[in-house]
Amino acid sequence: MPFIEAKDISFSYSNGTEVIKEAGVSIENGEFTGLIGPNGSGKTTIGKLLCGILMPDKGNIFLDKEEISNLELCQIGQVIGYLFQNPDTQIFNVIVKKELSFILELKGFKKSFIDYQTEKMLNLFKLSNLRDSYTFNLSYGEKKRLAIASILINKPKFLILDEPTTGLDIKSKKMLSNILKKLLDRGIGMLVMGHDEDFIKEMAGRTIKIREGRIIG
């Protein structure tokens, strides 16, 4: 059975219009899957359904053989790292380096380990010179990089990234694709939503196309 499997899911927001229409997706861990479609086609919604943020009206979703409604969000969070499209809702600290370390502190790791991991991530995402800056003054691309870094510090087994490349310049994109390729080599799979077909082609994986809430290939 695939790592994430959605069978005939339908979903409507509270205003009643059906945004996802009997969509089925199955995603293997360890490989790259791109989900592309125009604005408003339901990419973000599918992503939120697949990691249990939203519950489907019809159909079932299985994560690692477990029906997703039986899992709590924090249990899912141990397995999946989810990058929200809007970086502002997922930056919890005022200082850049604090944003990387706080989650490990909450989980009770040793200080020396936390410091080591934080430095590693700051270097990896070229954020070292911003370590003591205020997070709310960062540029959009910097925020995006910080958000991805603070998800990776958690060592997830699978990644769902909602438009990770929007707002990144060519150099940052290259940097991100190199980091993601390294993760793939380590067997960490990922689902990436976006319009950036070049980026998805470069990652050389499977692509799923979505249009108006239907999977079309």
Partner: peptide, 27 residues
């Protein structure tokens, strides 16, 4: 979204120790 995001980082907001709970609200 924020409450979901912090849970998806693996934080169990219901069963976290009281001292850390205050910190979590701050976050």
């Amino acid at each position: 979204d924020t409450v979901t995001a912090i849970q998806l980082r693996g934080v169990d907001i219901k069963r976290i120790a009281f001292k850390k709970k205050l910190k979590m609200y701050y976050y």
